[in-house]
Design a protein around this nucleic acid. Structure first.
Length: 401
DNA sequence: TAGGCCATCTGGTCCT
DNA sequence: AGGACCAGATGGCCTA
C-alpha cells in the first residue's frame, strides 16, 4: 500500500518540532517560556503571559524563579543553583562569594552575578588600598573615577530592564512568526515549522502566488508545489507534500536543495488532467498523464521553471531558491490543505487577492514585475482561507477602477 | 554524541 | 539618556 508521503520524516519532524516548541530556558535564564506542551498539559490552561508575569514577579522578589526555568514547575528550587553547575569547583569561588552562596542558596543567577561583581569590586578596592614600603599607595596618578554604588545599581537595573525589553521584543517577533505560520500552508499547532522553514515557506508561497497571478493561467499544481518546496528541508518538504496530499517521494531534493520530480505524477492519483492549455505550462504541450509526468520530470526549478515563470526568481542570482509552498487554497477544489484550526479570516478575507485588487495597490501592481494584465483571465476560483471568490472579477474590477 | 533548534543574556551601534 | 535593533555567546532539549 502506498504511503501518501514519507511518514517517517513527517512524524519525526513533527515530534521534534512539538518538543522543540516546548522549549525550556536554560539555567540562568530569567524568564520561563514554560513547556508549552507538557506544561500546558500539566498546568491546565494557564496562559503563557500569565506565567511570564508570575516569573517576573518572582524575579522582582529576588527569588530563584528565574532559575527554575529548566525544570517543570513541580520541581522548584532544585535548579536554583545559579550560573554554576553542580560540578563547578567551589574552591574556585571567592570566599566571600561562597559565603553568599551558602547563606543565600536561592539567589538567582543574575543576583549571583551581581554578587560576583561586588566581590571583585571589593577585592579591587582592597588591592588599591595596599601600600608599598614607603606607605604610598601602589597606584599613583589620576585614578580612574569609579562609578558609585548608586550608578552601579542603576546600570544593573537598566541592564535588567533592557533584558526584559529584549525578551519582550523577541516574544513579539515570535508572535509575528506564529501568525505567519498560520497563513502559510501546512499550519498545525502540533507540527510547527521551524522559524527558518516558516520564512522560507512564506517566501516561496508569495513567490508562487505572484507567479500564478502574473501567469494569468490556471496554476500548474505540481510546479506550484515544487515552488513551495524549493529549498526546504526534506522533512518540511515531506510535510508540505503531505499537507497537499501528494506523494513526497515524487519530490526529490538534490544535493543543491533543488526540488526535482521523479516518478509518476501526483496528478495521476489526484488530478484528472484535462487536456487544456490552462493546465499545461508554457512550452509544454503534453496534456495526458504520461506527457505531464514527462513534463514534471523536467521541472528542476533551476531550469525548467524559467520558461514557465518568465520573471526571474527574486533570488535568481542566488544558487538557491529556498522556497516552498503549501497553499491554503483550493484549485478548483482539487485539493485543500489541512489546518488544525482556521484563523478568523472573515475580517480580512480575500487575503492575497485583496492586495492586488486594492485600488491603492493597482498602480503598484501595474509597475510590478508581477504585473497582472487587466485582461488576464482566471479560469479558476481561488479559495483563500475558505473565502471563495471569483479572482477574475476581483482583479478585473480593481484594474478597471 | 553531534547537530539542529531554541530562548535568553549581553554588549555594541544607531536613532530619537 | 534611553530605547530599538542586532549579533555573538551560552546552555538546554531533542533526535538521529
Amino acid at each position: 500500500m502506498d504511503v501518501p508521503w514519507d511518514t517517517e520524516h513527517v512524524v519525526s519532524a513533527a515530534t521534534r518540532r512539538q518538543r522543540q516548541m516546548a522549549w525550556v530556558p536554560a539555567v540562568g535564564m530569567s524568564v520561563i517560556p514554560q513547556r508549552e506542551r507538557e506544561g500546558e498539559a500539566r498546568k491546565g490552561e494557564r496562559g503563557k503571559e500569565e506565567q511570564y508575569a508570575v516569573i517576573e514577579r518572582e524575579r522582582e522578589k529576588g527569588g530563584c524563579a528565574g532559575n527554575m526555568l529548566t525544570l517543570p514547575f513541580e520541581e522548584p528550587l532544585v535548579m536554583c543553583e545559579p550560573r554554576f553547575g553542580a560540578n563547578y569547583p567551589r574552591e574556585s569561588l571567592p570566599e566571600s562569594m561562597e559565603h553568599e552562596r551558602q547563606h543565600n542558596p536561592d539567589r538567582s543567577n543574575s543576583d549571583m552575578r551581581d554578587i560576583e561583581d561586588e566581590v571583585s569590586e571589593r577585592e579591587e578596592d582592597e588591592r588599591e588600598d595596599e601600600q608599598d614600603e614607603s606607605g604610598l599607595p601602589k597606584k599613583r596618578g589620576p585614578r580612574k573615577k569609579k562609578p558609585g554604588k548608586e550608578q552601579m545599581d542603576r546600570a544593573k537595573m537598566r541592564r535588567h530592564e533592557a533584558n526584559a525589553r529584549e525578551r519582550s521584543r523577541m516574544h513579539g517577533l515570535n508572535a509575528a512568526l506564529e501568525s505567519l505560520r498560520k497563513v502559510v500552508p501546512c499550519y498545525s499547532k502540533t507540527q510547527k515549522l521551524s522559524k527558518i522553514e516558516t520564512l522560507r515557506l512564506a517566501k516561496n508561497y508569495i513567490w508562487a502566488l505572484s507567479e500564478t497571478l502574473s501567469a494569468g493561467k490556471r496554476p500548474d499544481l505540481l510546479a506550484f508545489v515544487q515552488t513551495l518546496c524549493k529549498g526546504l528541508s526534506q522533512p518540511t518538504t515531506n510535510l508540505v507534500a503531505g499537507c497537499l496530499q501528494l506523494n513526497a517521494r515524487n519530490f526529490l531534493t538534490d544535493h543543491n536543495g533543488e526540488v526535482m520530480f521523479s516518478g509518476r505524477s501526483p496528478y495521476e492519483a489526484m488530478y484528472s488532467y484535462p487536456g487544456s492549455d490552462m493546465n499545461t505550462p508554457p512550452g509544454h504541450s503534453g496534456s495526458n498523464l504520461e506527457s505531464s509526468a514527462k513534463t514534471f520530470r523536467h521541472y528542476s526549478l533551476g531550469s525548467a521553471y524559467e520558461p514557465y515563470y518568465e520573471n526571474p526568481s527574486p533570488e535568481s542570482g542566488s544558487p538557491h531558491f529556498d522556497g516552498q509552498l503549501s497553499p491554503p487554497m483550493n484549485f478548483n477544489g482539487i485539493f485543500s490543505l489541512k489546518h488544525d484550526d482556521q484563523p478568523d479570516y472573515g475580517k480580512s478575507s480575500h487575503y492575497g487577492m485583496r492586495y492586488c485588487s486594492a485600488p491603492g495597490r493597482a498602480a503598484l501592481a501595474h509597475n510590478s514585475m508581477y504585473r497582472v494584465s487587466p485582461e488576464a483571465r482566471f479560469p479558476y476560483d481561488l479559495h483563500v482561507r475558505s473565502q471563495s471568490f471569483q479572482a477574475q472579477g476581483e482583479v478585473n474590477g480593481s484594474f478597471h477602477n
